[in-house]
Design a protein around this nucleic acid. Structure first.
Lengths: 211, 211
DNA sequence: CGGAAATGCGAGTATGTTGTTTATATTTTC
DNA sequence: GAAAATATAAACAACATACTCGCATTTCCG
């Protein structure tokens, strides 16, 4: 076989070796997340990202072969973060309310840094061309954590598809948080309380009043 | 007083007089909604809209002075539609479950035509420059209808701010529908049922198990 | 120190996009 | 059949923006 091509990672043009460049790369990704969240995919330009990062455009292209690889880096970082939040809030057995509280607190915290990043990543930005598998994997894990929680806290009822319930729950939470983020209301404690109550009510399954 | 300036509407360059042109304008707005929903704000170009409408670009500019006025037209039409759905589902006294069912059915129907239009209009597209008042008015009415429903069906509980509850409810519903739209799952009856249950559970206020 | 490697710079380019106009053709009205 | 209304699409001008390249600066290490 021929020699391995010097391609350490398909997503990075040059591997940062010194501490300085590692900080630079971090700054670029952080700036990219900031721009993406603040200006949306339409306003996500490489020049803007470089400027925001306080870095030259040339420097950016020294580490990221193109715009999409930068997007992919942001996506990876954010998804890893969100995933860890969900995992933590459901890790060991705890009362429903406690679970809901931790989940809400965690999700809100995760979105407080870059309020609309999550939605932009899911809706506006183009899907991962290179690693569709990674994206699907995230979706699967994400849903799976919710499904686990549902299975734990919700008594199985007739004809209630686990997956659907998990999807409804997750998208409802995301909807509330996204909406609050747009209004800069993420910090409002009243909102957190209501979101917790929504979760608890749905999972403990009231509503079937008449029967 | 001086003569009224011949500016029938600031949003339309030329008023369509014949039936043919009225159909053209309608086709343009419809195409605009379609493009906006399918390609997002980033893909929303006047040329694309004209092409989709099966109309020349020149024709488009005969009736819409610029891109934003076209966007405004789409927004107006869509918001009017959504508003009427909510109004209808809460118009007269009916049991909670009935209300929820009609609301869900109506919202899903409204989103089935252009699945992601609502979100694009709210998130990606720039806000109305000309008629900020109109936009605010929509928001107010929208929330108000929800608040009314909340007041009707939810027994007042300690420290539960009506407005917050209404916002949580509306954004949760929007989140679920938006998410389902992205997956082409709007038609799934199981999803509708779960969404109804979510609404009922939250409004009838279970969840406070321990007390 | 001092040379080499790593890192950073930013003007410049090339390429495309896109909103809009305009001169012309076709259709409708009366 | 003339005038008004409507439709056409080529062309443009302005702009945006992803990306390169040659060179300057900093860090590493003997």
């Amino acid at each position: 076989m021929s020699t391995r091509i010097a391609k350490p990672h398909p997503r990075m043009r040059k591997q940062p070796r010194q501490a300085r460049s590692r900080a630079t790369v971090e700054a670029i990704i952080e700036a990219a997340a900031h721009v993406l969240s603040g200006l949306g995919w339409a306003g996500f330009t490489t020049n803007k990202v470089a400027e925001t990062a306080g870095v030259s455009i040339g420097t950016l292209y020294q580490y990221f072969p193109d715009k999409l690889s930068l997007l992919a880096a942001v996506r990876r970082r954010h998804f890893d973060h969100v995933l860890s939040v969900i995992r933590d809030s459901a890790e060991d057995q705890k009362p429903l309310r406690k679970f809901a509280q931790e989940l809400v607190r965690g999700m809100i915290a995760a979105h407080s840094i870059h309020p609309t990043l999550h939605q932009v990543l899911l809706d506006e930005a183009p899907g991962d061309r290179g690693s569709r598998a990674a994206h699907a994997s995230f979706q699967a894990q994400y849903l799976n954590h919710y499904a686990t929680a549902v299975a734990t806290y919700r008594k199985p009822r007739k004809g209630a598809d686990m997956e659907t319930v998990a999807r409804v729950l997750s998208s409802a939470i995301e909807g509330v948080i996204h909406n609050a983020a747009r209004r800069n209301m993420l910090a409002a404690p009243e909102l957190q309380k209501q979101l917790v109550e929504l979760i608890c009510a749905y999972l403990s399954g009231a509503g079937r009043i008449g029967r």
